[in-house]
Nucleic acid binder design. Structure first.
Lengths: 288, 288
DNA sequence: CCATGATTTTGTCCTAGACAATTGTTCACA
DNA sequence: TGTGAACAATTGTCTAGGACAAAATCATGG
């Protein structure tokens, strides 16, 4: 028996949404305490878990709520793409906790940073994503994997001897997904650029200040799932106006996935574009 | 100009509460967009920051809202200990970015971990807090200091040769304040315990699983400003019920500052108590 | 087949009222 | 003066049902 607030937190669904679902679709139908406040029995919580999973898979509430509980169960099983027999998969499930770091490091020295990012880190995050959707990856293990990977990548960003340029990486207020930032930073690093991870949730107004402080040639900003395309465009336009012209502005992330054109901004929708982008925008220094 | 949701997240005050404050006290008094939705100008956001800070200092809304804006400012300054001419102060203001890490490391080797935590890290965080309130510390610099300090502390948590025990550190859903966790972990480490930082925002149900996975003897949980005392108590009770008896449960953080008694739970309101707690609860192994 | 406009669907916000839990105050009594 | 119990005020969270823009889907013409 949980309150609406607990449920909201646990599922990541707004309390308002839960109430409106009840009004519109007749589910969930919680019991009430003496004051008339909602109390959700654990049975309904489980149903909601399934509903959330289906929603994560891209289905819309109308479609989901049209089904009966058993139909939903069935549908979910049918929908879940099996995680391929990827050789990375055991990292997310079987491997004992203490060995994850060792294993990742082994692969890093084997492949080199660039290949490691593209062939190990990206697919691994993809698997984690899918497991998250179907609920087969615990939050705790997800944290552990993310943190280990993040730390490993961060270590690789040592300063270059003859940097082709210097980029500060950040996300704006409200964002946080360090891994995305680190992945792109690692690839820029491979191209000979100094990469500085500033941190997350930086207010718009402080970006310029930070650029100056670090003597950077460029700012790279990542927009995650949570920010709308419109908001991203707006923020970028404002930033471009405030930033000196010589500072390049690189933008990427889910919110910009459609690859629109924005004046004065280097939109980068794919990690594979980073190589080309560097060749174009950061001409190599003369060899001494 | 921010929406009520953004504001709610930023301040850690529920949207309902913000509306009810407006109704009862006449502040904040946001503007409205075309639909009649609230839009808070940044000026009011700053005032709310001060109000939240006063509330954290233990004052009640009635008292706070009875004052005018300038009175509140005054009152807050009066309440706050002034930033002493502490020799740490220059870290937050003057020191060039690149030297922060070096400076902290220097002090660490000079003082040793224990004294570093108590005499450097804690006062530094305190100064950052106060500077944050009066706006004289930019978010960017705060991030930088926090991250540098966190990384430094994390490095120190190498495994013990003959651990007196093993503790996993975590915060529950919705919490995040890594530094607090790391500070206490560092002190437990000084007492000869293996400390494992699990991560933040772990769902309640996964705590037990994590403890087993790491073979821990104890779980340490920190409750920050954002969680209410009531919620903290409730979570702890639930956790105690689910966890095997042999697993100790250590709780600390702002929400438990009053030091109430909770059956079967080691409440730790002050970093200085950690030494005693370890002596009591983790008897040293026989010397080989 | 793609673009563009019309039509659902959906999440979030609105108002104003209610009430339990917490905190503060009063007052009798040792 | 201190203690504790009864009473009063304060405060955060919940309720209901209505509203509406942004996003998604559908329909239509090129």
């Amino acid at each position: 028996m949980v309150t609406i607030q607990q449920l909201s937190q646990e599922l990541g669904i707004g309390a308002d949404t839960l109430r409106v679902w009840e009004r519109r679709f007749g589910f969930p139908r919680p019991e009430r305490d003496a004051r008339g406040h909602r109390l959700y029995p654990s049975e309904q919580v489980e149903h909601l878990r399934i509903i959330k999973k289906l929603q994560n898979l891209g289905h819309r509430p109308k479609q989901i709520f049209a089904m009966t509980a058993t139909e939903r169960q069935h549908f979910l099983h049918q929908q879940q793409k099996p995680v391929e027999q990827n050789d990375l998969d055991y990292l997310t499930k079987k491997l004992p906790v203490g060995k994850i770091d060792k294993e990742l490091r082994h692969r890093l020295v084997q492949k080199g940073l660039r290949q490691f990012v593209l062939q190990v880190a990206v697919p691994l995050i993809d698997i984690m994503d899918r497991r998250w959707v179907d609920g087969s990856l615990s939050i705790a293990r997800e944290h552990l994997l993310s943190d280990t990977l993040a730390e490993l990548l961060k270590e690789q960003l040592y300063p270059q001897r003859q940097p082709r340029g210097r980029i500060v990486f950040l996300t704006l207020s409200g964002e946080r997904h360090k891994l995305g930032l680190l992945l792109s930073a690692a690839l820029f690093h491979c191209e000979g650029l100094d990469c500085i991870i500033i941190g997350e949730e930086l207010p718009l107004v402080e970006v310029e200040q930070m650029t100056e402080l670090h003597g950077a040639d460029a700012v790279a900003i990542s927009f995650s799932v949570h920010s709308s395309t419109r908001q991203a465009k707006q923020d970028l336009a404002r930033l471009r106006k405030n930033l000196p012209e010589r500072i390049k502005l690189i933008a990427g992330g889910y919110a910009l996935r459609n690859g629109m054109y924005l004046p004065g901004i280097l939109v980068c929708t794919d990690l594979n574009q980073i190589g080309d982008l560097c060749v174009r925008e950061f001409p190599a220094l003369n060899m001494g």
